[in-house]
Nucleic acid binder design. Structure first.
Lengths: 333, 333
DNA sequence: TTGAAAGCGATACCAT
DNA sequence: ATGGTATCGCTTTCAA
């Protein structure tokens, strides 16, 4: 391998001190135009690229944001990741990406993350133990949860207002005259699921419903397909299904159509949650509550910057409203 | 912020030298069990986490792999990324993720990547100028292109055998008796597109076809939808369409069904390329040529490790065969 | 404006 | 097996 070029090599060639080279590449302004030119020439000639590792060691900042993604395979998250990357690029921050292994707690990978001294950490759709959150706080690393929250914890969070989203859907289905509304859940114990169900159930009861069908899913396509098949094969077949995610809703539509030969929305209305790109495809035309990803990402970054400024300010939970998107999978609207 | 804990603090508390602390955390074995315990106790008490930045500075290795993704929004790539992350996790490597801005050359972000001294770089679906490839070589950073290649360059590459894939599809459609086969292309000047088209065209001609319809797309859903709409509205409507990507093929199916009321495959057969998860959904049942992502990722990592061992070995292009997946979007098979 | 020198927090070589 | 110390490539005082 070619010998590595350092600022000393550049300094020697340019006939200046190493400090001066450093100043040029740190964008300091107290430098004579002539020396700056000489330094840049020399650097160019040698193919010098400043070493961010060494810089981080002295500045105590890496300019790297850590981001933990739980599941990239669900079509909603790549879009989230893309947005974050785009914003980070604009901010000239680098991104260290982690995935938590299936069913693995984020706690397990935290040591790896901390070793690299990221400036801040964003965790999507996964939980962090309170102890870990505290540890990060002690280390001065702001942590923002995205799409999950923990009450009474030191972790900040940005989340869609899932409870209100659930209410919106209950209203929609009841307003459009559905009588027998079923719910297909996501994984239990996940706030996105429980909140959506809570809003839905509360509003159902407020409006006089006392019982309804319910199947358990796991947010993924296949579970929606299977659960819908079970629901729609019953003698007391529901006339509407609220699925806790778009993914499951698409599965439910396919189950209705291709599994049982039913028409959507004529025979059964189906609603999702998230608004992933496929929801808009002609094949599905899914009515859903959109998570406003752009707003959520923006809020997350804003929160992160605040915490970077004042690490000890008290934790914040920011709720972003969901937006009802009417397409064509609910009859009578 | 709490004062940072360093190996010196641990050494002091444990009553040993700083070197010893370092040895414990570098997994050296020449250490008495008793001192090791004392060190670990002290570290634990203080909440010590080794600083990877400082370590990288001395070892000249970051343990970080850079990976550039062109478009996360196409459902094929998240799966690729997921695979890479999974393997890197197993190898205890971290991942620095970059996206090239739309229509931006990877060259533009290379300085950022190089600053962080990644141990190796994987570039998916984007090109690198020959000069940059050379520069990386000089810096001793192995570069592997994934899903693209450049002939006669210093860059290594892993790619599906797209030419053969194109041939396979021509054979399939001709064997099943189609007479009027159209092609919807991806972006021109992209090897994945040109190779697929080349294999397809060559085989078509070898088997006596001289002319066929062709529309230009860009690999994305909407372009497939639009192009199929144009093709299928013609008086000499094709009885089969080969789309250069699954994404476009799904668009084409929707265009046929929902745009024109045609049945797939009865009225028109449609074939894709990639085998993304949705291709298997009941709504589509898309016949396609699968890119064998697992094999490709494995080959990429293997290649990377080879290059890490011997940076000056000559560049390698590794072709992975595509695998025909027969579902239900082609009639007569 | 410029240069000299002291860190940053590890690793690794050299003694012991 | 352990400790002392030079070193990695920068940034950042402090003097000049």
């Amino acid at each position: 391998m070619a010998k590595r070029v350092t600022s000393i090599d550049v300094a020697t060639l340019a006939g200046v001190s190493q400090s001066t080279v450093s100043r040029v590449f740190s964008d300091m302004d107290n430098i004579s135009p002539e020396k700056r030119r000489r330094v840049l020439d020399a650097a160019n000639k040698l193919g010098y690229i400043p070493n961010a590792i060494a810089r981080s060691l002295t500045t105590q900042r890496t300019n790297i944001i850590g981001i933990v993604m739980a599941n990239l395979t669900s079509p909603f998250y790549p879009y989230v990741l893309e947005k974050f990357l785009q914003r980070f690029r604009e901010m000239e921050k680098q991104t260290l990406l982690f995935t938590s292994a299936p069913n693995q707690d984020v706690d397990d990978i935290m040591p790896h993350i901390m070793q690299h001294r990221v400036d801040a950490l964003i965790i999507t759709s996964a939980m962090l133990s309170t102890e870990m959150a505290d540890k990060c706080l002690r280390y001065g690393i702001p942590v923002i949860l995205f799409n999950r929250y923990i009450l009474n914890s030191n972790a900040n969070a940005v989340c869609t207002d899932n409870v209100e989203g659930g209410r919106i859907i209950a209203n929609l289905l009841l307003d459009s005259g559905h009588q027998n509304i079923a719910y297909i859940s996501g994984q239990p114990n996940v706030s996105t699921n429980t909140d959506r169900e809570k809003g839905f159930s509360d509003r159902m009861r407020e409006r006089g419903m006392t019982e309804w069908l319910r199947e358990e899913g796991d947010f993924f396509y296949q579970s929606g397909y299977d659960a819908a098949l079970r629901l729609l094969s019953r003698p007391d077949r529901p006339d509407a299904i609220f699925c806790a995610s778009d993914n499951m809703a698409l599965g439910a539509i396919d189950a209705a159509r291709y599994g049982l030969g039913l028409r959507v929305p004529d025979d059964v209305s189906i609603v999702g949650f998230d608004d992933m790109p496929m929801a808009a495809w002609p094949a599905y035309q899914l009515t859903t509550v959109a998570q406003q990803v752009d707003l959520m990402v923006e809020a997350t970054i804003e929160l992160m910057l605040e915490k970077l400024e004042d690490p000890d300010s008290r934790p914040i939970l920011r709720l972003i409203p969901g937006r009802l998107v009417l397409r064509n999978s609910v009859r009578g609207v």
